[in-house]
Every structure is written in C-alpha cells, then in structure tokens.
C-alpha cells in the first residue's frame, strides 16, 4: 500500500520539496486535509501521511499544528531577551529557560565580539509591557549565577552587559516559510 520509503540523508527529495512548497503557507481547513496534498502530488493519502511522519521523524517538520496569531489574541508585547551565559552552562540553563511557560522560543546563537556578546535568546510574550519586564526578571533570577562577567576584557569603547531585552515596536513583515521553486 505505502510506497514511500525514507531517503537515507536529511536532504529533501524532489517529492518532499514539492510537499514543502505546497504546504508551507498552511493546509486547507477541510475534513481531509491530506487528500488535497495527495491529489496535487499524485500519490496516495497513505503515502502523504507516511511522508509527513518521516519528515517529522527527521526533524524537517516540527509539528502539524494550529499556529496562533499571538498579536490578535492580545499578546501585543513581545520581548527578545538576550543573555551572555557562560559556555559551559548554556545547555543546561537554556533548557531550563525553554521550559518556562511564557517562553516561546529559546535558542543558542553565536557571539560576535565586540559587537554582540549575547549567546542565549529567549522570546517572551505578554499582554502588557509590565508583564514582559516581569518575565525578564524571572529569567534573570534563573540565570543569575551563570551570567558572564567580562571584567577582564572590557575596553574603553564598550562596556558589556550580561543581558538585555529588545522590545518589538513594529512588525514590518511577517510571513511563513517561503522557499522558492
């Protein structure tokens, strides 16, 4: 019945690429959403489900879900909190921050010294500016003992801080994934 087999590499097959192109802006809201993909890709529904399952297993698809529009639901304030966490602690504490109920994304990213010294990013969402600041304080309490102290390498031109928050003032563009053909 099911002809779809898992390709050995993480790289996408041509059929999978077509699947991504077809579904990146969402599935139709109908009783049988995978029938739509099956028809377009000229494969069976069982194959579409198997391919989706495999893409999930390989981490290409994080999940099939209803993605809320936070702004419309009253979460008008989002703050990107950024932290200079000691490298040896960043994994354990990153996971702890990621588990906080008000954090939607928590990522490790590279530093670019001296321009940018923060390596841990945690996105928080709130209905008021005060709420967002409170969340920052809660993360700070959690990270207090593992934040980097850069006393040795502070130069005259720049003083490093161990954390910061970047509040979004305007959404200038927001779309889903847009891979080109």
């Amino acid at each position: 019945m099911c002809n779809y087999t898992c390709p050995p590499k993480a790289k996408l097959t041509e059929l999978e690429r077509q699947y991504v192109l077809l579904t990146q802006s969402g599935l139709p809201i109908v009783a049988q959403p995978y029938h739509f993909i099956a028809e377009r890709l000229h494969i069976s529904v069982a194959d579409v489900l198997a391919m989706t399952k495999d893409l999930k297993a390989r981490g290409v698809i994080r999940r099939i879900a209803a993605v809320p529009n936070h702004y419309k639901l009253g979460y008008r304030y989002n703050g990107m909190t950024v932290w200079d966490v000691q490298d040896e602690h960043v994994q354990a504490f990153g996971q702890a921050v990621g588990r906080l109920p008000f954090v939607s994304h928590c990522y490790l990213r590279p530093r670019h010294l001296p321009r940018w010294n923060y390596n841990l990013f945690a996105m928080v969402h709130g209905k008021t500016a005060e709420q967002v600041q409170q969340y920052r304080i809660q993360i700070k309490d959690l990270l207090e003992n593992v934040l980097q102290l850069r006393n040795d390498d502070i130069d005259q031109a720049r003083s490093y801080q161990s954390n910061d928050i970047l509040i979004s003032t305007e959404i200038l563009k927001k779309t889903g994934l847009r891979l080109k053909r």
């Binding site: 991504v20 579904t23 990146q24 802006s25 969402g26 599935l27 809201i29 959403p33 989706t52 893409l55 981490g59 290409v60 698809i61 994080r62 999940r63 099939i64 879900a65 209803a66 993605v67 809320p68 529009n69 419309k72 639901l73 889903g176 994934l177």
Partner: peptide, 10 residues
C-alpha cells in the same frame, strides 16, 4: 486569530 493551520517547518 490563527497564522495558519499546517506544518511548522524547521
């Protein structure tokens, strides 16, 4: 209220 319903890609 929804951005979309469907796959969230990595």
């Amino acid at each position: 209220a929804l951005s979309r319903v469907g796959a969230v890609f990595n």
